[in-house]
Each structure stands twice: as structure tokens, then as C-alpha cells.
Amino acid sequence: MTEERADPPADLPFRDRGRLAGALLRWETLLLFVGVALFIFNALATPYFLNPWTLSDATFNFTEKAIIALAVALLVISGEIDLSVASIVALASIAMGAVAEIGGPLPVIVATGLAVGVLAGAVNGVIVTAFALPSIVVTIGTLSLYRGIGYIVLGDGVFKNYPPEFAIFGQSYVWWVISFELASFLVLAVLFAILLHKTPFGRSIYAIGNNTLAARFAGIRVERVKFLLFCLSGLMAGVASVMLTSRLGSTRPTIAFGWELEIVTMVVLGGVSILGGSGSIPGVVIAAFVMGLITFGLGLLNVPGVVMSVAIGSVLIFVIALPRILAMVRR
């Protein structure tokens, strides 16, 4: 029972700050502080860190995952999840490799990657919406299925006959130290922010995530929205696959193995509720940079990759536990 006025106001004021600047931005501000602290730590830890090229290199380890996280964030806000994204990256990469192997031209290679991504996402979407199944189980299934198809096609082999021009997606720079990958991520982040925060489609994602029934009663086509979100998630996995494949210059069936965990962590760290209904794109973007800085910082300390997962897992649990602990302490 917050502020209810006794006498009727002639006109209700509009204060968007009450919502945006309040709960949401507070989380994002906190995250930003964490990011700055990590930045300073890294800068103190090594003199090379402040070199623009070092900074630029540091972005490569998270931009591809972050691109997928943008789409997964939308899914999670709508109350669903996609654990198959990393397998979609692998499947798309293998499809591209196969096309490259028979000498397909560059546009066809890229189009294949994107199309396979959308198709794989659409399969997830159809199964989840047509049978009203929990997306966590379905995407655990397709996680195995998509990666498994990769193994069938490639076995323990490797595709590496990519045309030289293919390298631009993962190895080129658009301006000075700004890589093609980073630039793409920033542009996509802006597009996703607009989609989620400024369009009717984005509004219906929030409505569905908070109260699916009320959304349905309001005439929102819940199944269609969810289907499209799964397609979008597949598409972004396809985009990430193009960049990753281009950056590595080769495809093995284990490509992007285990990424789903880091992507979900990024999304949850960004303030998206795993139960659906709340979260923002700026939050996810900041979380992506924070995770990049953590990984980079640990790398400076010569911490091997698998140990970084301890840090990432702890951050994930700590971040969702913190509000509950604070609420318990307050009571």
C-alpha cells in the first residue's frame, strides 16, 4: 500500500523514473561499479592493460557469447530458456564448413550459417509451443541433438577450407581498435534495446513473462511471440557462429562447448530474473563487459580457463542470492 492519495488528483503525474531509475538502474549501477573496480584492478595488475590493443583483444573473449545473451535475455524475460544455443553455434559452424568444403562462395557460407541458426531455433520454438512443453527439457534435448548431428557429420574431423575473405567477420577491425565483432555487438545491443524497450513486441515480452494468462486475455499471441523469440535466439547463435568460425578459421564438433552456462550467467548477472518478467538490455550489456573483465583479470593471474568457471559459477549464485539475503536481513 504505497502512496495512495486521499483526494483525487485532477491528473495523474507520469514519472517513469519511479520504475526505470529505481529498481532496475540501481542494479545496473551496482554492476557498473563492479565493472569499474575490475577495470582498475586489471589496470593496476598489468601496465599493458591500458594499451588500446590489449583492451581490444580483451573484448574477443565475450562478444560472441554476449551477442547470443542478448537474445537469450529476451527469452528468459518471457519465462522461457534456451540451453541449446551453444550446440546451435556448433551446428551452424559445421554447416558453413560443409558449404566451404565444396567451394561455396562467401555469401552462401554466411547465409547457410544464419539459416541453420534460425531453423534450429524454430525447431525449439515449435516443440515448446505446439506441445506446451517446458523449454528447459526441450532445449536440453536439442542441446544433445544439435551437437550430436555435428558429431555425425564431422566425427573427430575438422573443416578448415574457409575462403580467406571469411576472416573479416572475426579478425578484422572497422576502425582503429574497434573490431568487427565488438562493433556488431554494440549495434545489435542497440537494436535489441530498442526492440525490448520501445516496441509493442518488447512490451508483450514483459507482459508474458510476468503473467502469461493476463497477456493472453489481453489478446497477445503468446505462442507466436515465444516462437519468434526462439527463432531470434537461433539467429543470434548463427551470427555468433559466423564470427567464432571466422576467428578460429576452423570448425571442430566441440566448438563453443559449454557456452550455454556462461551465456545464462551473463543474462542473470545482467539483472534478468530467471523466473521471467524483468530485466533490461543495458544490464545484460554491462554484465557482458563485467564477465569479460573477470575473465581477462583471471587470465592475467595465469588462472586456467576451467578455474575461471569457479569464479563465474560463484558470481552467478552470489548475484541471485544477494537480493534474497538482503531481504532476509532487512526483516
Binding site: 520501445k198 509493442p200 514483459y206 503473467n211 493476463a214 524483468s278
Partner: peptide, 27 residues
């Protein structure tokens, strides 16, 4: 079924007819 309790008043009110509050694709 009626309200999305976590969303603000104005967003609840425009939900059944979002198309009417959209200009060139944007809210």
C-alpha cells in the same frame, strides 16, 4: 487474468490495444 501486477498502470492500460499506441513500429 486481468492485470499484470508487476507492470505500471499505463502499461497495463494499453496492453490489449498496443497497435493503437504504435507509430512507425515504435511505442
Amino acid at each position: 487474468h486481468g492485470a499484470v501486477l508487476q507492470l505500471p498502470i499505463y502499461q497495463n492500460k494499453t496492453l490489449p490495444n498496443l497497435g493503437a499506441y504504435t507509430r512507425r513500429g515504435f511505442l
